[in-house]
Amino acid sequence: MQIKTSHLILRPIQADDAAQVHGYAGDPDITMMMFLPNDTFEETKEFVERSVAEWKKDSPEYYEFVIEHDGKIIGGCNVGVHDGNKMSAEFPKCIFGDIGWILHKDFRGRGFATEAAAALKEFAFTKLHLPEIYAQCDSENKASFRVMQNIGMELIDDKGKRVSKSGRSGIEYTCRIKNFYPPELESERLVLRPLSISDMNAVYKWTGDPEVARFMLYSRYKSEADGLLWLSGLYSKDKWLDYGFVLKETGELVGSGGLYFHRAGDVTYTEDMWGIGYNFRRDQWGKGLASEAMKCILDYGRRTYGIKTVAGTFALDNIGSRRVMEKLGMTYWKDSEYTKFDGSETFKAKTYRKDFL
Rank of each mutant, 00 (worst) to 15 (best):
D16S: 08
A19P: 09
Q20A: 12
A25R: 06
P28S: 09
T31S: 10
T31F: 12
M32N: 08
M32E: 11
M34P: 04
L36I: 07
P37G: 10
D39H: 15
F41T: 07
E42I: 09
E42R: 15
E42V: 08
T44D: 01
K45Y: 14
E46R: 14
S51M: 08
K56H: 12
S59E: 13
E61K: 15
Y62L: 00
Y63V: 03
E64K: 03
E64N: 11
F65H: 03
V66N: 06
V66D: 04
G71E: 06
K72S: 12
I73T: 07
I73W: 05
C77G: 05
V79M: 08
V81L: 04
G84P: 02
N85S: 11
K86H: 12
M87K: 11
A89F: 13
A89P: 07
P92H: 12
G97R: 00
D98V: 06
F107W: 12
R110D: 10
T114C: 03
E115M: 10
E115L: 08
A118H: 03
A119Q: 02
K121A: 03
F123V: 07
F123S: 02
T126A: 09
H129E: 13
H129V: 08
L130R: 00
I133N: 00
A135W: 01
Q136G: 10
C137R: 04
C137F: 04
C137Y: 01
